[in-house]
Write a protein that binds this DNA or RNA. Structure first.
Length: 418
RNA sequence: GUGACCGUAGCUCAGUUCGGUUAGAGCACCUGGUUGUGGUCCAGGAAGUCGGGGGUUCAAAUCCCCUCGGUCACCCCA
């Protein structure tokens, strides 16, 4: 071999047991949201590029992180950088009856420099609710994410919530921010001065030392809320209190996608020592459906990062991967044909069974049996073949073994595996 | 896109400072000790373009340049 191919930059292979843990995380999520009546939606992984441009021309996701290309039919296509736009596009296309409560799981793609917790292909699980404007939907959505983290066993996740107000409030607040930062432009970092010109809200996100004082002194969004927006936000926080979901109000919480209005929220894993510690986030996007061609329909939802959530589980030492993948290992020293039939019999009886290949020695097959994690071995040698029996051996403990008739093999294994 | 650090068996790493036989170890893997029995132990084996290319030199894993990749951080976000 003169050349080894590698997974492309920013992507990686998820091998067992990580893959098993990954799958079971998605299973837990599906269980949590199904309990609340959410139905799965599986949108395509790419869309017409215009769908994602609705995320906001000023966002980095659209400006420099999109995997876009022209297909052979001359269509401008982009791999999805997130799924909310796809799901809302699907809503606009199919017009399901509202309230439409959907959940999803799958990969997204952003062209970025990879680092811990940030990859070019990254998976998210999430929900979207289209239709109701009720603040209690915001609370339900937030609480579902919270219960999901609880089910995983995570204890050190914190929830920050904020309101960006109605679109009009948001515009007035942006002006107030622009005035605040412009007044003291010299003490702002160079990067933030650039950000200020493009999107003043995002300056609040700066983690640079130089900006700390000015950001701390910035006006609060909460002082710029209309009465309606303030009432909506109050109903959200009251409901979270009633649910016993702890949160902090973070007036400077801004999120990177321009479609958010009113409620926004973010989950941070305190246990993660990485820079990328936001494990999930979401908010309300009342204008998005209309932008994508549907009648004006309010929406709210969240996306949780699968990769980062699992990193957080590592950091907290919770949600361990399963260990054993099979129950019974078949050892056959008579040529292997008995093993062909026996593994099939075992599998049809509902037992997980595997075997060794290539006619290896009994010792090698027993090593393989041990390594497989199987609790029991079924052994066939010339004697058993002639007698129509098998040896059933306990691979745990002291390895007791008995010779049994073929007819009773399944029953005995079931009893031993219990 | 910017910066820092790092690339030696499948994995974790010695060796690089100060160039010098055939590049080592542990784990994992294979075979045997045990021609019908795993785990522990013992013996042996296989496994490396020293990330790649170029340069300096009698001689390069080691020095220089370029490049690719990885990690982390900035940015941004899940």
């Amino acid at each position: 071999m003169d050349h080894i191919f590698r997974a492309p930059k920013g992507t990686r292979d998820i091998l067992w047991p990580d893959s098993a843990r990954w799958r079971s995380l998605v299973d837990v999520f599906a269980d949590v949201v199904s309990s609340a009546g959410y139905l799965e939606v599986i949108p395509p992984m790419f869309e017409h590029v215009e769908v994602f441009q609705r995320l906001g021309e000023a966002t980095d996701v659209v400006r420099k992180e999109m995997y876009s290309f022209e297909d052979r039919g001359g269509r401008q296509i982009a791999l999805r950088p997130e799924q909310t736009a796809s799901v809302v596009r699907a809503f606009a296309q199919h017009r399901p009856v509202v309230p439409w409560k959907a959940w999803y799981a799958g990969p997204n793609f952003r062209y970025e420099r990879a680092q811990k917790g940030r990859y070019r292909q990254f998976d998210q699980v999430g929900v979207e609710v289209l239709g109701p404007e009720d603040a209690h939907v915001d609370a339900e959505v937030i609480a579902l994410a919270w219960r999901f983290y609880e089910r995983l066993g995570l204890r050190r996740v914190t929830l920050a919530v904020n309101s960006l107000g109605s679109p009009g409030d948001r515009a007035r607040y942006v002006e107030a921010l622009r005035a605040h930062f412009s007044a003291d432009l010299d003490s702002l970092s160079e990067e933030s001065r650039t950000t200020l010109a493009v999107n003043p809200l995002r300056v609040l996100d700066s983690s640079r030392e130089a900006d700390a004082d000015l950001v701390a002194a910035a006006p609060s969004m909460l002082d710029h809320l209309s009465d309606d927006a303030e009432a909506h936000f109050g109903r959200v926080t009251d409901a979270l209190d009633a649910l016993g979901v702890p949160f902090t109000v973070s007036p400077h919480l801004v999120r990177g996608l321009d479609y958010y209005v009113r409620t926004t929220f973010e989950f941070v894993a305190e246990a993660l020592d990485a820079a990328q510690d936001a494990v999930g986030g979401g908010g309300r996007y009342d204008g998005l459906a209309e932008d994508l061609g549907a009648p004006a329909t309010p929406g709210v939802g969240f996306a949780l990062g699968v990769d980062r959530t699992l990193l957080a589980c590592d950091a907290e030492g919770v949600f361990d991967a399963p260990t054993s993948v099979i129950d019974v290992f078949v050892v056959d020293t008579t040529g292997g044909e008995r093993a062909v039939v026996l593994t099939d019999d075992l599998r049809r009886a509902g037992l997980r069974a595997d075997r060794a290949w290539d006619g290896r020695s009994m010792k090698a097959q027993m090593k393989a049996a041990d390594r497989s994690g199987a609790a029991m071995a079924v052994i066939v040698g010339e004697d058993e073949l002639a007698a129509g029996t098998v040896a059933v051996r306990d691979l745990r403990g002291d390895g007791g073994q008995e010779t049994v008739a073929l007819d009773s093999m399944i029953d005995i294994l079931r009893a031993r595996l219990r």
